[in-house]
Design a protein around this nucleic acid. Structure first.
Length: 641
RNA sequence: CAGGGUGUAGCUCAGCUUGGUAGAGCGCGUGGUUUGGGUCCACGAGGUCGCCGGUUCGAAUCCGGCCACCCUGACCA
């Protein structure tokens, strides 16, 4: 848990906010391009595999082209957006005191041996053999290389703290790439790594972590995104504290939960649940609902199957999941010989959260292999909490929502269905006190070390907030665009990266790592900002700020267009002149599709009075008539809105 | 990885059940027409029907194998 940054830990939901000064912050001269000179293959129809708005529109508008599953070419307009996002990332990273470098994408497999990530990454890792038969891989992230480089180039504590970053193509052989740029096998990522002597204090990890938290907030704000920051699990990269930056979007793959009272927000994997008080009668207390009855449930290992077959709601069922203890080191393996098990029991409509089971049991766990568990007496698919009773090396944890014998809402004893611990059978009228095989109330009272009640399920909307009395969690979907981690000494220890401190003591270096999915951010922008006609780019990352639609591009009109474009460019605006010999309707449709924030229409009629038409992409209709001389100013004003 | 589905023109798809050597719309080219929200008309170019094998006089179509792509799910049994 990240300590000491108070407000930073709470959810920050940032409104779309960008100002004109951001557009021409560098006071550079804008670009001018003619459509006829560019590759912008717009289409009326989307590719059959495109389903989400960002995928459909970026394909139709000619920003990207699929080359193979999860691999895309960035066409000129797409590449311009990508570069603009990259530039924002660069500016903010540099401002936060980080320095840019470029690591290789292709690396030797041996590099992952010390941290064991060649195994840990498994199938996700893109592997290949070179002509000499040496194992190579394409980098999914770069902790090992950068640690290796720093190890051989930084030998004094005086060089720390240090934060380096790169913007690189990453490779992950996803099970299932999907949704265009949102989940790719090849994608662009900014990854940063920081190195410290300490966690706390000046120059420590926390200081950099907080600074990059702020930098990320600036980056996504400048990109025009509506996003939330949530507490997160650190996942396969490992480490302690971690925050995710989530674009708020219904199409997102991640579920986040937040407390409207306290501002607490977390990924569903991580989200804590507020106290769920014991029933008035106490845990497990309640009369049986009937005789214990065994029912034949062939081929129904899943809750859903049984629920359908027996016409029993999942919230009247107990789901029992078996984990095997994995010794964390040789000491543990020696202290606890043989197989140890943790049995987690939750209500049928809930999901077991492995992280919570791990924390409560204080053991490293993995889901038990079905055959192995059967051999140990757990009839996987038909397990009940009874299976944990009477076994020596087995801990049973029951979630509060499952640990009830009396249904307070209905005012009568709780009816339970659970496995019969025998293939193809379940039991009805399970009663904790009568049928468990030991007295759960007494076991709790005497603090039986093999039995406990604890919060071990994923949080859901409607659960009590862990941070505000009486408040209730709400759910929202999001797209993860940034993730920051405190790694601690995980990598430096594994790779033996130690350094002499001021007291001449060898200490492992403390690390942090910080990622931004650059290409995913581009897609997330489209998800969040489009309408039926196409994309509506936020000005700071639009491929061009202005599209100039020429109704009939004859010499005179072209000359006026060039003049206006030069003036706009002088103000720092990028201009795309649609000079194609196309019907006006086609050009208007394409202008809406590609989504430049401002359109300047130049036609003979308005021009006769010295006017052009200017409108924002969000506004319908023809736009307002503006004298040619005032066009640049009007465009800037619109972009600032 | 499991389950389902699809591969036919640059794109979106029909044709396959019931075998006879391939179609539409969009796009593309030429000519005309039109010129402020995907004009209209005519003519035209473009396909080893994913690959390999089998059945057959004959296969886009039937059978087998492979490959690619897509959807759903996914350590919760």
């Amino acid at each position: 848990m990240h300590q000491g940054s108070g407000a930073l830990c709470s959810a920050v939901r940032v409104r779309r906010l960008y100002t004109p000064t951001m557009i021409d912050a560098t006071s550079r001269t804008g670009d001018i391009a003619r459509w006829s000179n560019m590759l912008i293959p717009t289409t009326r129809e989307a590719p059959a595999d495109a389903e989400t708005p960002s995928h459909i529109f970026m394909a139709r508008a000619g920003f990207i082209r699929k080359v193979t599953a999860g691999v895309y070419a960035y066409l000129p307009l797409g590449y311009r957006v990508l570069r603009k996002v990259e530039q924002i990332v660069r500016e903010e990273m540099d401002a936060a005191g980080c320095c840019e470098l470029l690591l290789p994408a292709l690396m030797p497999l041996e590099l992952l041996k010390p941290t064991g990530r060649d195994e840990a990454y498994g199938e996700l890792l893109f592997r290949l053999d070179d002509r000499h038969g040496r194992g190579q891989f394409l980098g999914p992230t770069h902790e090992e290389v950068i640690t290796d480089i720093l190890q051989t180039s930084v030998s004094s504590y005086k060089a720390l703290p240090l934060t380096v970053y790169q913007i690189q193509t990453k490779y992950r052989d996803e099970f299932r790439p999907r949704a265009g740029l949102l989940r790719c096998r090849e994608f662009i990522m900014k990854d940063a790594y920081s190195f410290h002597l300490d966690v706390e204090g000046p120059g420590g990890l926390n200081e950099t972590y907080d600074r990059l938290y702020q930098a990320y907030t600036s980056i996504f704000t400048r990109c025009g995104l509506d996003f939330s920051v949530v507490e997160a699990e650190s996942g396969p990269i490992g480490g302690s504290a971690s925050h995710e930056f989530m674009v708020n979007c219904e199409n997102g793959e991640d579920t986040i939960l937040f407390c409207p009272e306290s501002g607490y927000a977390a990924n569903v994997e991580k989200c804590e649940i507020g106290t769920r008080p014991a029933p008035a009668e106490g845990w497990f207390v309640g009369e049986p609902t009937g005789e214990l009855e065994e029912v034949h449930t062939p081929d129904c290992p899943a809750i859903e199957d049984v629920s359908r077959l027996l016409k029993v709601k999942p919230d009247c069922m107990l789901k029992t999941v078996v984990f095997k203890v994995v010794p964390r080191n040789e000491e543990e393996a020696k202290a606890y010989p043989g197989d140890w098990w943790v049995v987690a029991c939750v209500r049928g409509d809930h999901e077991v959260n492995e992280g919570k089971v791990r924390d409560l049991s204080e053991c490293q766990l993995e889901l038990a292999d079905a055959d192995e568990a059967r051999a140990a007496g757990f009839e996987i698919g038909f397990v009940s909490p009874r299976a944990a009773i009477g076994k020596d090396q087995t801990l049973l944890i029951v979630d509060p929502d499952a640990a009830v014998g009396f249904d307070e809402a209905k005012g009568k004893p709780k009816f339970w269905v659970t496995g019969a611990d025998r293939k193809d059978y379940h039991i009805k009228h399970f009663n904790w006190q009568r049928d468990l095989g030991k007295d759960p109330v007494a076991a709790l009272a005497e603090r039986d070390c093999k039995f406990m009640v604890g919060s071990i399920r994923n949080a859901e909307a409607g659960d009590p907030s862990p941070r505000a009395e009486g408040a209730v969690l709400q759910a929202r979907r999001g797209i993860e665009v940034g993730h920051i981690f405190k790694l601690g000494d995980k990598y430096s220890k594994a790779m033996g990266f130690e350094i002499l401190d001021a007291d001449q003591k060898r200490v492992p270096v403390i690390m942090g790592c910080y990622g931004i999915g650059v290409s995913r951010t581009v897609a997330a922008c489209v998800e969040q900002s489009c309408d039926d006609d196409g994309i509506i780019w936020p000005a700071p990352i639009a491929p061009f700020h202005v599209i100039m639609t020429l109704i009939k591009p004859d010499e005179r009109i072209l000359s006026v267009a060039d003049d206006v474009a030069r003036e706009l460019a002088r103000c720092g605006l990028d201009v795309l002149i649609d000079d194609r010999e196309e019907r006006p309707g086609v050009k208007f449709k394409d202008a809406d599709l590609v989504g430049m924030p401002v359109r300047v229409t130049i036609g003979a009629k308005a021009l006769a009075d010295g006017n052009v038409e200017i409108k924002h992409r969000r506004d319908k209709g023809k736009g307002e008539l503006v004298p040619v001389a005032e066009a640049a100013g009007r465009c800037q004003a619109l972009l600032a809105m």
